[in-house]
Design a protein around this nucleic acid. Structure first.
Lengths: 210, 210, 210, 210
DNA sequence: AATGAATGAGCCTTCATTCAT
DNA sequence: GATGAATGAAGGCTCATTCAT
């Protein structure tokens, strides 16, 4: 039982380090963040830090992967709640906006902290996550495609038309000066959701005939 | 005449430094690029470098501003070639894709090299550029809005629906493995251009069921 | 009985640590060997290590003393087997070569691992061993000296002429690339043994021209 | 001309660093010597140090090679002064003892500072030196061998019998407590020189016949 | 305009060791 | 006897920048 207590304390320390690193990376960037700052803010000692992590980049990589996984899981959870094509596509766009509003720091990290050093350290594992993610969304779409409800497009174009507008919007919103107004996201939901649907749905037969 | 020759040589050196820095920043990131690497690749000496630039960040900032200006100028040149709303909006989307294809390194720099240190050094001047840019596009749009041809939306949403899909698409394309296939951009032009137009144009009365 | 079993396990652990340390010190040097490496190779935990030893240097010192003692004991055992001067001197030279062949790692440690840190920790005890050793060899030689069979020389010179050639030979042999050929040692025995004897014996009256 | 002055100052700094490092390595060992100590004693700054050397090991390696070259050059110079086999062999043994007396620190470095880290860094270049050195001594010996004045032995044995005793002697002498008595070396010259000659010369025909 | 030696603050990291459990 | 998380002093080294020439 004592072990349990220790393991828990150990995990708490890890979380404290990750948390401290996250906000520092966001404010100062990865390169400008010093280990000393991370230690100071997390209350860890040098040795303790290196007992839990291999180094600074590993922390950044771990952070990126954790956040990416969290975003993708939420996205897929939302997608699976829907049977209908339109509901799924619009729902995930709304979900994207809501997740960004609730996890501003995480979203900012996902978007901005992509320095080559860190990217290299997380690349392999990130690709695994992405492969799984696109596999799942692809499977969900497959049926609706078969029914002719959606346009046939290359995967990149699909992604661009689906999430592109919302992603661009949240990107700009995150760049804006703080404190950010979460209501702006809510107000944009309808427009961005229906834009995604209109971008992806198969052209209605009515439009063809004059 | 001697002065002219010398000034020219001097400018060549500056360009060599900028060029060397650009590719290094792109491959290794700003933080991981050392002055020594820049000097080696450009053939400049320490003293020569500091004769031409104030320091490393100034080079990165100058690079960013130069590229941003180049992109925006090309965008505006294209926009001004068109009188009609649809032609302008679709034309600039195509222009975005073509510019990216022709200036892959510059486009990558614009998208990825946004470290806080550099951002801070270029922010003030970048905002000037952006203000001018959005002023110009806004002026172009104003007339079409007045005529009721376009939806009325907040600026951020406007941008997201206009360039969002194309930007997302080029972002993914730039992340792809090299050598990149420029034809993919050409093939996407039609879809992304008409998506932008459909996203922005005022809803046609025809579509409403009587 | 439990105590006996435990004590035995404990000693096994100690031996495992010494063994692991020995090969690491030989391959990487004392300074470049980390405790972590020793622990990994021996299967001990940090705490366990410090239960058995005071620290890293103590391990190195213990190792040195143990090996030195082993070498000297074997040397003396051989020496005492002989009554005659020549047999003793030649026998120990051969013994030196054989011991080196059978204990290559130990011999290498004795020759090369003499870093000041470790030397300081083992110095006092090493001098005790050496004093005893030289006392014994001196006692053995004394009688033959008295009989005029050996030259009268300073102790250092004595040692240099006796073991010098063989020691130099094994030193070079140990530096050679592995796997080392033990037969080279065997083939050198005759030459080195008789060289030692010729170097040390009193000049024969025969050689002098009448 | 100004360049000449600067280059000279630069070389002076390098020498100061090498000198400082040498005595520190000798007293404390390579591992226990810190860069800070080297800087303090040589008056160089961190940056200056790294401007001239790649790192601590490179200094140690450079030192080793410089000293080895110096020793071998002196050895060969002495050897070439002699035509006769006996004079050459005895002369170089005496030279070995004299060089050790005049360059105690260098000799100690050559003998003791052989940590794997440093050895690895100097190995390739050291082998070049050794190859050249043994090539030269071999060439010198060749003629005398042809004339039947010397025994036929493997190179290692040759070296062991020639320099072994003197080397062992100086090794012990260097280990002795300071200040060392140089006269001890002088007094050993005769014995060690003639021992080398007796070890190497072809057996006199007289000895075979009773 | 150019050179390159010199600077030194500050970085990430290593590692032997301690100690509560 | 054993465990391993925590410690923190100390280390080697990087690198942008300065400056005398």
């Amino acid at each position: 039982m004592e072990n349990g207590v220790r393991a828990q304390a150990s995990r708490a320390r890890q979380q404290a380090i990750l948390q401290a690193a996250l906000s520092l990376f966001l404010n100062n960037g990865f390169g400008a963040t010093t280990l000393e700052q991370i230690l100071e803010r997390s209350g860890a000692s040098v040795g303790s830090f290196y007992h839990h992590f291999q180094g600074k980049v590993e922390v950044a990589a771990a952070l990126y992967l954790e956040i990416l996984d969290s975003y993708q899981s939420a996205f897929l959870r939302e997608l699976r709640r829907h049977r209908e094509a339109r509901a799924g596509i619009e729902g995930t766009v709304r979900q994207h906006l809501r997740w960004t509003g609730h996890n501003q720091e995480l979203a900012a990290y996902l978007t901005h902290c992509r320095e080559p050093e860190v990217a290299a350290a997380s690349e392999a594992r990130a690709q695994n996550l992405n492969r799984a993610f696109f596999g799942q969304t692809g499977a969900w779409l497959a049926e609706h495609l078969r029914q002719g409800l959606l346009r046939r497009l290359s995967p990149h174009l699909y992604h661009a038309l689906w999430i592109g507008p919302a992603d661009e919007f949240t990107r700009l919103w995150l760049l804006g000066s703080r404190p950010r107004d979460v209501k702006q996201l809510a107000r944009a939901e309808d427009v961005l959701a229906s834009a995604a649907w209109n971008n992806l749905r198969a052209p209605s037969p009515r439009r063809v005939r004059p």
